[in-house]
Computed example of a mutant assay.
Amino acid sequence: MTDIEFGLDTFGGVTRDANGEPVAHPQVIRDLIDDAVVADETGLDFFGVGEHHRPDFAVSSPEMVLAAIASRTERLRLGSTVTVLSSDDPVRVFERFSTLDAVSNGRAEIVAGRGSFIESFPLFGYDVNDYEVLFEEKLQLLAELLTEQPVTWQGTTRAALKDQRVYPTTAGGLKAWVGVGGSPESVVRTAKYGFGLFLAIIGGPAQRFARYIDLFERAQDEFGIAHRPVAVHSPGLVAESDEQAREIVHDGWLAMRTRMGQERGWPPPSPGDFEREIETGALYVGGPETVARKVVRTLQTLKVDRFDFKFDQPVPHGDQLRSITLYGEKVVPMVKDMLG
């Protein structure tokens, strides 16, 4: 367990200024680059940037942001969390990330997924009714492209390929994962095509995902595939004390949870939901020791190779940057000591 990696993820969520107003997208993106520099300086292992196409998230092209980060960091591995593969082209995805891999001197990773929002489907001319077949076929093709050998492939969602190689090549291959929200079918598919499993734990207790990790291991055995790594990601914020962290996060969390509920048909948050998610759910909010102990409980429950902290909350950027510093300088060392 002392070999577990620790990373940070962001969806490019729009932060708030001192008056509580949304920060403009260009500044949010520039702030993300500064966030990654601090993450690199504190010794963290991974920095992930997600793709969205909606006003409350600033990043629609993670690779561009990651390339800028690569120029200002030295050791952080850099990946997407996630690349919405269903509405993208696997050939272009490989080309962009193999280019990022060259720019970053071998630090690039792909986290492919279907995405938790569907805005990209009409934006790029895809029918959301083809949700399943688009992802299945494109994931299969991406898996073949990652071998960096001539590919012959035919499907229904793009033009066929015959003995086609894709460039640029990489020096050591691209590490690739599939982001999974919690369906058994997605876990089995991830195993089938030989990707790492990246579990998004954004609500409820972490232990309910243990069965998915077990399923992933069994599916790899049945497919005769060498075991790939498992990562988990959960949202949170670290402050100087538990009370300060809750005060910083509460209003933004409530507003976002209410908005997401209205979009997806969820019931509105009930009194006590925020506290329950902190105490027993997927929200890692508190002072360094409180967050560290919760991370340890998760890592003792789930067999994972990486724990990622989704740090972007609708809060002032200064609070977000302080959270990153505390996570890297205090939380992670505490976790390593407790596990050791």
Rank of each mutant, 00 (worst) to 15 (best):
R322Y: 15
R297H: 08
R54H: 02
I118S: 13
S186H: 02
F209R: 03
M338H: 01
D273W: 02
A39E: 02
F46A: 00
E74H: 05
G252K: 07
Y193V: 13
E119C: 02
V49Q: 07
A68W: 06
T147V: 05
D242C: 10
L142N: 01
P316D: 11
H227P: 15
D31Y: 10
G328D: 08
A292Y: 06
I202N: 04
P333F: 04
N105K: 13
G272S: 03
V188E: 04
G125D: 03
G287R: 04
E137L: 03
E329F: 07
S186R: 11
R72E: 12
T325L: 12
V49D: 07
A226R: 10
L215G: 03
D319H: 08
P268F: 06
D40R: 05
L32V: 05
L197P: 14
E243Y: 11
V91S: 15
E275P: 12
V188T: 14
A219Q: 04
G204V: 15
K330C: 00
P90S: 09
P229Q: 01
H227C: 05
F46M: 00
D127P: 06
P268N: 07
V59N: 02
R322D: 13
T156G: 09
T280Q: 14
G252F: 12
N105I: 01
G287H: 01
Q140S: 15
R228Q: 09
S120M: 06
Q300V: 09
G265K: 09
E132R: 12
Y212H: 12
Q140R: 11
D56H: 07
Y327V: 00
P26A: 14
L197A: 06
L44W: 03
V91A: 15
E275L: 11
V332Q: 02
P122T: 09
D163L: 02
V65L: 11
D101P: 07
Y193L: 13
G182K: 02
R218W: 09
R92W: 10
P267E: 06
E41F: 00
E21G: 12
R264G: 11
Q154D: 10
E95W: 00
F135N: 04
G281E: 09
I225F: 02
R189V: 08
R306K: 14
D305A: 03
A206P: 11
R293H: 11
G155S: 09
K162N: 03
R306V: 13
M260I: 07
V178Y: 00
G272M: 03
P62Q: 06
P55N: 14
K192R: 12
